[in-house]
Design a protein around this nucleic acid. Structure first.
Lengths: 224, 224
DNA sequence: CGTCTTCTTGAATTCCTTCAATACATGTGG
DNA sequence: CCACATGTATTGAAGGAATTCAAGAAGACG
């Protein structure tokens, strides 16, 4: 049973003319690696469409502990929960690498929802698949050991962002700290477990580049 | 900052005539305490609307570990993820106490989505608030100690199901095992921590009845 | 009234975190 | 382009939180 977590770019589902108008009116903005696209708690005046690059959605709690909620890739909408649900962003968005983003004002977004059934269907699809993905994560977090969760995270990263030309090296490079915030553990634990997995020949560490040399073993580890 | 997690009954947002037709055509079915409303993995031919009673949505992993994903109360739709996303239910639904449920066939449900913008908006709202709730849970699960999570769970239960006439006793009675499956821990840990909290005067244990005598203290524990 | 489920308690162990100290990398300004 | 500053990675050791196993007590339910 394979779970597919990713939906297509919802913007692709509105008529070309309208999309072009939208992308023209709201021009792309560039974000350098590490820069903040929008902060947690800010009033949600619109949604953001990631056009190129990679970004993370993160929450920080009162104790300063950081949790990565979602990793976005081109085509993904960010911040729609803030617009649809409350009135402020429940998480911050930050560029993992240099990225371009289009801002879509709330009124335009809600207008799209109203006027384009295919768009609103796509949003429902998107929300549903997000919900599934998050629930799946939740269940894993509650029941699995850190090593399993880390293995699973590596596999998910490969599905989200794919591999480099060699077909093995993950196309994202995250810091150990980011892995920790994604898996829900301490940085040191990530380091130790990655080395564990390397000893088991499940992967090869080349600095921040990770080579998933044995996907089957990783799947096995993820299932434990 | 108070987070509101619950949405109104989406069925209330379609015209009376149509709702009556729907509820008439698909008559209510009764479920005894503990009985299965629908199983995980079953092909999703429709959604279920909980009319009276209480139910839990659970996933079970390959190792037999159980996780409660959601607790439903009257008005809640169950199984919509299966209908909207994939084609099978990603979790099972089970009655916590005697409940009545209306089954809404997939075609009817999708028809409602198509024809009633207010309904599809309500579904979007529902999905969004669910997503927020689940993400909030996720972040807590990853970062907080079991005691905090348990305290938070107690508070959420009070919001979902409310109190008995005394204004303190939770209106749901769950087994320790169910608490464990909700919080993501072992049954024994739940027992020990509940007794801990009783010593701290945060609550009073009367068998399966829990009296939340000090909400502020519980909130404080939940925040740690 | 007896059976079965649920609850409770203790003890041993495992997993993970935390702290601290050192090595390595990365990027920036001179 | 080098040197330094800063951020990131690594390793060890100690401690703590939670799990697991086991066994007995209490409660629910027919």
């Amino acid at each position: 049973m394979k779970t597919v977590f990713h939906s297509p770019d919802p913007l692709r589902l509105i008529p070309d003319s309208e999309r072009l108008k939208l992308l023209e009116k709201n021009q792309e903005k560039e974000f350098k690696k590490g820069s903040l696209i929008f902060p947690e708690g800010k009033q949600a005046n619109g949604v953001y469409s990631l056009r190129t690059g990679k970004a993370k959605l993160v929450t920080t709690d009162s104790q300063g502990r950081v949790q990565i909620i979602h990793l976005a890739r081109p085509g993904d909408l960010m911040g729609y929960r803030g617009v649809l649900g409350g009135d402020s962003f429940s998480c911050a968005a930050q560029a993992i690498e240099a990225s371009t983003v289009v801002f879509i004002p709330k009124t335009d977004f809600l207008h799209l929802l109203d006027k384009h059934p295919t768009f609103s269907h796509a949003i429902i699809q998107l929300l549903t698949s997000e919900l599934r993905r998050t629930e799946h994560h939740l269940a894993g977090l509650a029941r699995k050991h850190v090593k399993s969760r880390l293995a699973e995270t590596l596999l998910e990263l490969s599905e989200t962002y794919g591999f480099e030309e060699d077909g093995q090296t993950l196309a994202v490079t995250l810091t150990r700290e980011e892995f920790a915030a994604l898996v829900g553990t301490a940085t040191e634990t990530v380091i130790r477990l990655l080395h564990d997995m390397q000893e088991q020949q499940a992967l090869k560490i080349e600095g921040r580049k990770l080579c998933l040399t044995n996907l089957n073993l990783l799947k096995q580890l993820a299932a434990e």
